[in-house]
Amino acid sequence: MPGEHTGPIEETVPPVTGYRMLLPDQWAQVPLRQGTEEAIRRILDDAYTRMPKDAPPDRIGPYKRELERRFRGAVAQAQQTKALDLYLPVKPMGGNFSLGASILVSETPLPRSAEANDRTDPADLAVQLLSLDGVEGADLSSGEIDGALAVRREHVAEANPGEGAELASRRVEYIVSVPGDPDRWFVAAFSTVGGGHPRDELSEALVEWFDAVMANFRWRRG
């Protein structure tokens, strides 16, 4: 019959246009390339509405200024990394505004040494990408997230007051190959100071929580 197709039908998969992470309401997204100021103002204004109504006026002003200083400082530091999005827990349990944890989302290209070698194993490429910052002694593992290769790295970053890190932090990074685009890698980096020590019970619980977040990570497709 004219127009009848009897051969195999190729299923076209829409290209990846973004990502989706399921986070509780306590966490807020700050886009770092567009709409940053609008997000900052919205988050701060919301935080101000949760201040005690009977708080002394002479304490409200200094509290707001310190809150904004810390929050803007965290955002500015994230912007220096050329990342895409920053997620912060702006409504933690107990009603206190805290910056004790964060998730930084970015994108990274292939290392130059690997661009010309199509035979390089994807997992090896991911490890190369993670090793660019010189972190040693990290725990590495690999698997799949939403059908894409993922490499997980976990380590403790020591305190560095000169860089604004007053406490040591526990860090977990996932680097995920973007489906259909072998030159692009998605990176989600989680950091927490826990209850003041990178190996305390709160840190352990938050790392488990972030692993669960990434287990439910999904791509957005056009």
Rank of each mutant, 00 (worst) to 15 (best):
V127K: 15
E107Q: 13
G134A: 04
G143A: 15
Q79Y: 07
E154K: 11
V151M: 14
A148Y: 10
E136Y: 07
M93F: 04
D183F: 04
E136N: 05
P182Q: 02
A126W: 01
M93L: 15
I60V: 13
K82T: 06
L99M: 13
E166A: 14
A165Y: 03
S102E: 06
H155A: 08
A78R: 08
R170D: 05
R119K: 15
L88A: 12
Y63S: 11
F97E: 00
V105E: 00
L125Y: 00
P109D: 14
V135C: 15
L130K: 04
V156D: 09
A101S: 15
F186E: 10
S142C: 14
G134D: 12
H155C: 09
R119N: 13
A138K: 08
A165K: 13
G164R: 05
V90N: 02
A188W: 01
L132C: 02
L149N: 14
L110E: 05
R184G: 01
G162Q: 11
K64N: 06
N96L: 09
R69T: 14
A123N: 12
R119L: 14
R119P: 00
P198N: 11
D121E: 11
H197K: 03
G73T: 06
E163Y: 12
E144C: 10
N117F: 06
S102F: 13
D183N: 15
T120A: 15
A123G: 15
E144T: 11
G61S: 04
F186C: 03
P109V: 07
D181H: 04
A168W: 01
R153A: 13
A165G: 15
V127S: 07
G73Q: 09
R70A: 10
L130N: 03
N96E: 09
N96K: 08
A123E: 09
E136P: 00
G134N: 05
Q128N: 05
V105T: 07
R153Q: 14
